[in-house]
Nucleic acid binder design. Structure first.
Length: 809
RNA sequence: GCGAGAGUGGUGGAACGGCAGACACGCCAGACUUAGGAUCUGGUGCCUUUCGGCGUAAGGGUUCAAGUCCCUUCUCUCGCACCA
């Protein structure tokens, strides 16, 4: 028996698909809107390490789905490209002097070859590369629109700085106080930065999550990241100081329990209100806090620190004179950077009050708690309850009390309802070389002036050294002939912006460029956007939950507001594929030596085996370990299919059992493919092929539909078998097989008989036998009379086609 | 600490509230070849000689019936982390 010649087959069909442009997507108006699908993969960053086995997992899933859709009469857009700006190429350039573009394009060529070797049905004519000037021209163009709308601004502020990458980072790029990319502890640094006003979209980014078919955990992460909270701001008068101190609280009902105030050390009031005798201590504390990184501040969370300023505020509800402290447990970046402290009902305030022996007054009672409430409570209680010690508000439940006190404050002009978000504006500039130049100039006379749109792209110039300066300037700052330019507005001397955009910029809108990748006049023609958008299915890793997936939603909404796109959300459905771990159940990494190279798998087992194995491993969404033994099992499955195809094909009617199994198989593979449950679809195909392999001759009617089912999963083998069956043209354009419902169920059903919940017997009955009849039959079933003898049947339950359950006493 | 998800054979994993372990790997036995990561057949959760009993992280509950629904606990993974 000839072995399955996967190498020849795969090469042959890949060439044919390329020559015949089999998977080219065309905006054909004959397909109504509901028969069009845009299926998107998260495009890869072409690292020097080459493709990882994790990439083909998502790509295979979408590819199977796309092939399935095409066979079902859909016009499918399925593109691929490269996210090509980024630090690794730049770091390599620093070490070797090789231009990042050289490395990047070499890596792209390798990635493209590797991806093509797996036989994915991409329309390669739409490929985009984010570092291509014709691409980033439009990234820059979008930046200019943001700038013109006031959504991009310059600010000098303390930011997250990675001392190793020598660049600023967005909040989203900091994980547990460390640089998400290199793991170095981030420090705070105050420098001039470009910032995007994503906070202006906070409410919409939050609300519109409700319309998305995304995994709940991802939506929840975005909700938490946006961090909306409702509360009130309250103004407190300060003794001997004109300006009132504004604080934010989510629990205005606890106002009577505010026994002290806390300001962030950076709060602008601090120098003004601090009394002379406390000045030295306050200044020392501020200095200490400034030297700490955010991580160090949170590491010390358990042990609260702080100093008294000597100043007092007046509690507006009861006129109480309460001390003002500073402490780094209050963050300058959230709310107003100042709080009223209610130690009885806030754990942090409780800790602080205990440590510094500040008074604690209970103002919320637990339901049923009777008091007395005139002494210090034993423990902090953050739960809702009934107001006590709160003057005219006593007796109100928390929710009502919040409403009443808020009204009371508003009437007197000393407070108002407020909404706060944890989301911060997006720090958008990087002090690095390999990114999109920000297309503005700084003119002494005109200030910040955007470049005219016609002048784009503003190309990234050649530099002698890629090494970041570390001073807060990018390597571009060293090229004086590039930096020094003229102002497009006044013609006077001006300096170019030397910061570049972050890696996320290019990926914020790439799905739109696929629609019209060569368009020199627009980021994409509106008719093409209307034809394909929004993306119906987006598959990729969960690591971008609050990075790419949040940023691109933001940009898309801006483009929507500008009237440039047809929907206010880009990705209707999102699926996160799980991680593929090493055979040792650990994350694959060079240092662990557990990395599997897809090239080796394709070389030794073939692309189809790789694809089918990765889909057979388990559900798409979960993490699972690689197993070469498992791969061999799938390889055997394909070998068996090839062996069947070598047997004589006969034009004979099907045996009833085979016909039933065929229709069951079509049904299961159809449903499971449509719902992305590929592992169970494959197992059904295995069951079917195991049956067929028992036959000496293969009836065409049993074989042809199976080849069609297999084709999206193992496309090279599918094409070859289709051709062997005498068909011309690609199997990818053949219609998906249909099943007859009546042939998917058995005529005879095995009925289980339970007595007191335990299975005691089984019998077969014709499908659809009535419940009464089943119970009669069950009483006579093997061994059942013995189980029932001498007992009283209390209850008999029958489930049609399934079981009979007796309850006896 | 808070939030989310997950715990099923030796392994990856199946299972509309209805026979737990489909399919695959591995292992055992046999056949055929006589080794080129073979192929085919049969077996394979645990205990028990049989009848049968026990089994889905642990404990409890609802139900004729629970891996599946509810409560409590434990473990692991991920996310956030003094957000007032």
């Amino acid at each position: 028996m000839a072995k399955y010649p996967f190498k020849d087959i795969e090469k042959k069909w890949q060439k044919r698909w390329e020559d015949e442009q089999t998977f080219r997507a065309v905006e054909d108006e004959h397909f109504p809107k509901e028969k069009r699908r845009y299926v998107l993969d998260m495009f890869p960053y072409p690292s020097g390490a080459g493709l990882h086995v994790g990439h083909p997992e998502g790509y295979t899933a979408t590819d199977i789905y796309c092939r399935y859709l095409r066979m079902n009469g859909y016009n499918v857009l399925h593109p691929m490209g490269f996210d090509a700006f980024g630090l690794p190429a730049e770091n390599y350039a620093i070490q070797t002097g090789t231009h990042p573009a050289v490395t990047t394009y070499a890596n792209i060529d390798r990635f493209r070859t590797q991806i093509k070797s797996l036989g994915f049905s991409y329309d390669w004519s739409r490929e985009v590369i984010t570092c291509d000037p014709e691409y980033y021209k439009w990234t820059q163009w979008i930046f200019l629109q943001l700038f013109k709308k006031g959504l991009a601004y310059e600010a000098e502020m303390p930011i997250n700085w990675c001392p190793s990458c020598k660049t600023g980072l967005a909040n989203e790029e900091v994980k547990e106080g460390h640089c998400d990319r290199c793991g170095t502890k981030v420090v705070r640094k105050r420098i001039r930065q470009w910032v995007l006003k994503i906070t202006a979209y906070a409410e919409r980014l939050l609300a519109d999550l409700d319309k998305l078919d995304w995994p709940e955990p991802i939506k929840l992460m975005q909700r938490n990241w946006i961090g909306r909270s409702e509360g009130a701001s309250v103004f407190f008068k300060i003794e001997g100081y004109d300006e009132a101190l504004e604080i934010y609280t989510t629990r205005p009902d606890t106002l009577f329990g505010a026994t002290y105030m806390v300001l962030a050390p950076e709060h602008p009031f601090v120098p003004h209100i601090t009394t002379p005798e406390h000045r030295a201590a306050v200044e020392a504390y501020i200095e200490e806090a400034a030297a700490k990184s955010d991580l160090e501040r949170t590491d010390l969370a358990k042990d609260k620190t702080g100093v008294f300023t000597g100043a007092y505020a007046i509690n507006p509800v009861n006129g109480a004179r309460i001390p003002i402290w500073i402490s780094d447990y209050v963050l300058i970046s959230y709310g107003t950077g100042a709080i009223m402290a209610v130690p009885a009902h806030d754990a942090r305030d409780w800790d602080f009050a205990k440590k510094f022996k500040l008074p604690i007054i209970q103002v919320v009672a637990r339901p049923g708690e009777t008091g007395p409430f005139d002494r210090e409570p034993e423990a902090c209680n953050e739960a809702e309850g009934i107001a006590v010690n709160s003057g005219q508000f006593d007796g109100l439940p928390t929710a009502q009390c919040i409403a009443r006190i808020s009204e009371w404050l508003e009437e007197r002009g000393i407070g108002k309802k407020t909404v706060n978000y944890k989301l911060r504006d997006w720090l958008f500039s990087r002090q690095r070389y390999w990114g999109e130049p920000i297309p503005v100039v700084h003119c002494d006379r005109c200030g910040i002036v955007p470049l005219p749109e016609e002048s784009l792209p503003l190309a990234l110039p050649e530099v002698k050294s890629y090494t970041p300066t570390g001073t807060g300037e990018s390597p571009l700052a060293a090229i004086s002939e590039w930096v020094n330019t003229t102002c497009p507005r006044c013609g006077g001397p001006a300096k170019r912006e030397t910061n570049t955009m972050p890696q996320w910029a290019g990926s914020c809108w790439y799905y739109l460029r696929y629609l019209d990748p060569k368009n020199p006049n627009a980021l994409a023609d509106r008719s093409k956007i209307d034809y394909w958008m929004p993306v119906d299915l987006y598959v990729g890793g969960a690591e971008h939950a609050v990075l790419h997936l949040l940023y691109s939603r933001f940009w898309h909404k801006v483009l929507y507001d500008l009237g440039l796109v047809n929907t206010d959300e880009p990705f209707m459905r999102l699926v996160n594929q799980g991680m593929i771990l090493g055979e040792d159940n650990q994350k694959m990494s060079k240092s662990r030596g557990n990395v599997i190279n897809p090239d080796d798998i394709v070389e030794n087992y073939g692309a189809d085996a790789m694809r089918v194995y990765e889909m057979f491993m388990g559900p798409l969404e979960v993490s699972k370990p690689w197993s070469t033994a498992g791969l061999v099992g799938v390889s055997r499955f394909l070998e068996r299919i090839w062996a069947i195809s070598e047997r004589p094909l006969v034009e004979e009617p099907l045996a009833p059992e085979i016909e039933k199994l065929l229709h069951k198989t079509i049904k299961k593979v159809t449903n499971d493919t449509a719902t992305l449950n590929f592992n169970t679809a494959i197992s059904q195909m295995m069951i079917y092929s195991n049956e067929l392999s028992k036959l000496e001759t293969i009836p065409r009617a049993a074989w042809e539909p199976f080849v069609l089912l297999l084709a999206p999963y193992a496309p090279h083998l599918g094409e070859e078998l289709w051709e062997k069956l005498g068909h011309e043209g690609s199997v990818s354009k053949a219609p998906w097989p249909a099943y007859r419902e009546e042939l998917t169920c058995d005529d005879e059903k095995e009925i289980v008989v339970q007595v007191n919940g335990k299975v005691r017997s089984k019998f077969t009955a014709p499908a659809g036998t009535s419940k009464e009849k089943l119970i009669e039959m069950a009483k006579r079933a093997e061994k059942i009379p013995e189980w029932l003898s001498g007992k009283e049947i209390v209850k008999a339950i029958a489930v049609q086609d399934k079981l009979v359950s007796f309850v006896v006493r």
